[in-house]
């Protein structure tokens, strides 16, 4: 194996609730007045799933009412099917939920994924570019739907070092920065800008993570 190969996420479990109980709807953030059906999914990679949930809102009239990562990631999951995230789609009818789930799974299988930052696959990086935001991430990031965004995730030091490189590489602004630790002990950032700028930033981010993975310790200035 070599660097920057995709680590394709595994969708662990999928369920649909055609007519959910109002109490359940309310407790997971849905509005019983607008939502009747729920779609549930767990996956072994959380950040690709956030992207895939957002993707679902572009393909169906669904809302992402709940999406939470689990502590310490999928290597320390509560069960075989827990993974590291539970995502919940809500819609007015089950067909919309089905359509949303199809888009979500398609995105996880063919698009969003972590990449190996070193040969052994012990360092992962998520330099994802979203060309056009859906309702979910645009609301979370405070950006307009349809805007471009670079969704960048890496382990703590790598993420910090690479974020600096990404911000300097292109004309982008930080929409949100999540310093470590996240629930899964990663660090992430959402950068806004034109699509080419987002792509340049993501490439610089991935390159920087690879560089750290190759030479973890640079103890003194090399000047």
């Amino acid at each position: 194996m070599s660097i920057l190969e995709p680590m394709v996420p595994t969708v662990l479990s999928v369920r649909r609730i055609p007519a959910a109980h109002p109490d359940l709807l309310r407790s997971y953030g849905a509005d019983p007045a607008r939502h009747a059906s729920l779609g549930l999914v767990t996956c072994d990679q959380d950040d690709p799933t956030y992207v895939a949930l957002d993707e679902a809102t572009k393909h169906a009239r669904v809302d992402v009412v709940f999406a939470r990562s689990f502590y310490a990631g999928s290597a320390h999951a509560s069960g075989r099917l827990s993974g590291e995230i539970l995502g919940v789609l809500a819609a007015a009818d089950p067909d919309e939920v089905d359509e949303g789930l199809r888009a979500l799974v398609r995105c996880l299988e063919h698009d969003a994924c972590f990449y190996r930052a070193d040969d052994a696959g012990t360092v992962a990086v998520f330099p994802h570019v979203i060309a056009s935001l859906g309702h979910y991430l645009s609301r979370e990031a405070g950006l307009a739907p349809g805007a471009s965004m670079a969704y960048l995730v890496a382990p703590p030091l790598e993420a910090t070092y690479a974020l600096d490189a990404a911000l300097k590489a292109a004309d982008v602004t930080a929409a949100k920065i999540f310093p470590p630790p996240s629930e899964t002990n990663f660090a992430s950032a959402w950068l806004a800008g034109e699509l080419p700028a987002c792509e340049a930033a993501a490439a610089a981010y991935a390159e920087a993570v690879v560089e750290v993975a190759r030479r973890p310790r640079v103890d003194r200035s090399e000047r």
């Binding site: 330099p127 570019v129 993501a202 390159e207």
Partner: peptide, 9 residues
């Protein structure tokens, strides 16, 4: 898009 980007990298 992102896979193409990473492949180029």
């Amino acid at each position: 898009q992102t896979r193409a980007l990473v492949a180029a990298l």
